[in-house]
């Protein structure tokens, strides 16, 4: 049985058809072609699929696609404007906070949610907030530095 869903992704109204079992991550990647959100586990353990749902940070693999009806979704594809990267994206490049980069979309979405809630986090705040975002390449050191650098820049902007 297919269900038709109307939702908003990164500010744009979109519709898709899905099965009731399908996850929001499946719908974003498969139905809408937004492959920036990654599937590292499909069970909420890695955070690579992080998106915001009505402003809350969630794992899109743990949300049914049908639950997106009438909701506002934010993904990594919505971070940059046409001509400018988000300060977090720029900081990740400047601080070499990615190696393979597959965790990066989820971490950027999660870090953005953190800085909206807490513009001046301690390193420990950053580490605990991002504990659900696994990165196997970097050891997190440069990620924490990049988030702090973006936070400082956003505070002074």
């Amino acid at each position: 049985m297919s269900i038709s869903v109307s939702t908003t992704v990164n500010g744009d109204a979109v519709d898709f058809i899905c099965n009731p079992e399908e996850s929001l991550l499946d719908a974003l990647r498969g139905r809408l072609g937004l492959t920036g959100s990654k599937e590292g586990c499909g069970t909420g353990d890695c955070g690579a699929c992080s998106v915001t749902l009505n402003g809350r940070l969630v794992c899109s693999c743990l949300v049914l696609a049908v639950e997106a009806e009438g909701a506002e979704i934010g993904t990594v594809e919505g971070l940059a404007s046409a001509d400018r990267l988000h300060p977090l994206q720029q900081a990740f490049l400047d601080h070499a906070a990615l190696q393979c980069g597959v965790c990066t979309p989820g971490i950027l979405v999660a870090a953005k949610a953190l800085l909206e809630k807490n513009p001046d986090p301690s390193d420990e705040d950053v580490r605990y907030w991002l504990a659900g975002n696994l990165c196997r390449c970097t050891g997190y050191d440069k990620i924490v530095r990049a988030v702090q650098s973006a936070a400082a820049q956003m505070r002074s902007a």
Binding site: G44, V58, C59, L62, L114, G132, N133
Partner: peptide, 9 residues
């Protein structure tokens, strides 16, 4: 319970 993401739900 879980991560920040899991807490969201």
């Amino acid at each position: 319970i879980g991560s920040t993401q899991v807490q969201g739900r």
